[in-house]
Structure formats: C-alpha cells, structure tokens
Design a binder for these strands. Sequence first.
DNA 1: GCAAAATACATCGTCAGGCATGGTAATATG
DNA 2: CATATTACCATGCCTGACGATGTATTTTGC
Lengths: 114, 114
Amino acid sequence: MNEAISSDLIRGHIDTIIMRVLRKQDSYGYEIIRSVTLFSSGQYELKEPSLYSSLKRLEKASFIRSYWGDESQGGRRKYYTITQKGTEAYENAVHEWRNARNLINRLIDDKFVE
Amino acid sequence: MNEAISSDLIRGHIDTIIMRVLRKQDSYGYEIIRSVTLFSSGQYELKEPSLYSSLKRLEKASFIRSYWGDESQGGRRKYYTITQKGTEAYENAVHEWRNARNLINRLIDDKFVE
DNA sequence: GCAAAATACATCGTCAGGCATGGTAATATG
DNA sequence: CATATTACCATGCCTGACGATGTATTTTGC
C-alpha cells in the first residue's frame, strides 16, 4: 500500500484540491471526499472538518457558491460550484505550487537537478 | 525577481532544509539563514523564530547536536552538527517529500502527467 | 422487522508550525 | 562615537488540519 501524506505536507493545498474537483463539475461534501480519495488512489483521505472549513473559507472568498439540491428522496445535499473568481484563484494556486515545488526541490533534495 | 513562497507551502519543510544544510558542514544560526537565502536565490528567507524553534525541535529529537564555538574574538557562535539519526531522518523526509510531491501534483494539477 | 452501517450535514476544541515583535550583547564601520 | 551588523533568544498570535462528537436519513444484513 502507498504511503499516506502528512498533515503538514498537505497543508495549504486543500482549498486548491477542492477547487480542482469543482472545476470538473458541481459536487457536494461527501462526493468531494470520495473524488479526492479516488484521485489519490487512497493516499489521502480528506477529513470532514478539513472539508467543511475549507468550503466555508472558499465561499467567504467568493471562490465557490452553494445551493441545495432538490432531492425528491434521500438526504439533502448541498452542492458547490466554482465561480469565475475561483477559477482564477485555482489557476494562480497551481502556478504558485509549481514554483514552490521547484524551490523545495532545490532546498531539500541535493540529488535534484532542474 | 522570483516569487516568494508562502508560509503554508514551506510548512513542514524547514526542519529538512536545515538538516540539508548541516549535512554539508557544521554551521550556526546566522550562517544557516544565509545558506538558505543563497540556495533559494532569495526566494525564501528563513526567519529567526522559525530557525530557532526548528533547531530546538531537531535537538530534542536528537537529529542534531550543538556546541559552542571558541571564538577568540567576535560574538559567540553555537554550532550545530547533524547526527546519524538525523541523517536517517533527513533521508526519510526527502523520500516523503518526493511522494507528497507526486501526490499533490496529481491532486491539483490536471495538466500533470506522470 | 429491526439493528447496524452508510450517507450527509455540521460544530467545537486542540495542536503545531511559522513568524511578527521585541530584547540582549558584542563587534565592525563610517 | 553613534549606527549597523552579527548573533543569540523568548513571548505570543494566527491559521489550518483534524479528532471527537452530534443529528438525521437511508440502505443493508440477518
């Protein structure tokens, strides 16, 4: 089985991960968690408190919007959509990540050559 | 000028960065900061409180040891050496980083192909 | 038919790491 | 001789991840 990722190393990326999921299609809490587990082949399982505080953060920043699904049956679901502003924030975060990735490579990995 | 890295993205890497510096040679606080600034071409400047709390953490974990330099003149300097245990921890951290790097790539960057 | 598990939402409180601020003391420099 | 630089260190704040816990509904196993 693959290694799990530590909290400290995932920190700062959860918002981006969630926006990435929402860029594909609108989704709701539990489904987002499942998507992330799937994408990561089980290496990372997004925890509920992390998910919900991230969603709140993102909505407050107007990076996402939410609406209640009209399930005729079954539990209610709150769906989330990414906004234009969110899409820009996502692209910016990916750019920042690429930059940070290269920097950290250089700073910790002496076998790393760009 | 290159982009600076955000606190959240550097989080969890400072210990490893410092151990990487000490693997080359024994060093002391201010010199470590200068080394990191140099290695990163100014993209990351290690802050003093981060440095000293990291050094404490590392020493407590027996990953490094310290001794006072015998400066016949000039301010006293506390030197740090990496231990065998520290070297192992460093190698482990690099391994973990490579893993996390690939995972985060997959999770946030939809243009990323391994 | 009912207990247990799964689905789906959410809050509270804790913990750790990074760092802004501020402080001390010695040496070098203009 | 004042100011900057070198070098050490402590206190306290903020943020983000998440363990624990809670509620309600639906599905599943026996």
